[in-house]
């Protein structure tokens, strides 16, 4: 089976930044994403236990390479300074490239 190369963008962030991440994704034409509620530890200490707004979230989206740079730039410009947020990109293969 042939797999087509695309990028998997993962953003792990405080849950109150999740909607901002999603609206940036949608603003750049990304049609689908997956979110989870997660817990963990980072720069800003242990997160995910405590009040509702102090949880972490993970947003994953499979995107084509041509939209990736703009996406990463916009997220870093708008959200890096003020929110607990980690972003990384991986190469993945998908069977139906026309979905993305």
């Amino acid at each position: 089976m042939k797999l087509y190369p695309v990028k998997l963008l993962t953003v792990t962030c405080e849950i109150l930044a999740r909607d901002a991440v999603i609206s940036i994704l949608e603003g750049r034409g990304v049609t689908g994403y997956t979110t989870y509620e997660v817990a963990g530890k980072g720069d800003r200490g242990v997160r995910g236990s405590g009040l509702e707004g102090e949880k972490n979230a993970k947003v994953e989206a499979v995107v084509r390479e041509e939209v990736l740079t703009g996406l990463v730039e916009e997220i870093s410009q708008k959200l890096f300074a003020d929110y607990a947020l980690v972003l990384y990109v991986a190469d993945v293969g998908v069977a139906r490239v026309e979905k993305f």
Partner: peptide
């Protein structure tokens, strides 16, 4: 306010 405040303020005054 400590339940409503974070939800509103993180969005409105993220700095």
């Amino acid at each position: 306010s400590f339940i409503a405040a974070p939800a509103v303020l993180r969005h409105a005054i993220p700095e």
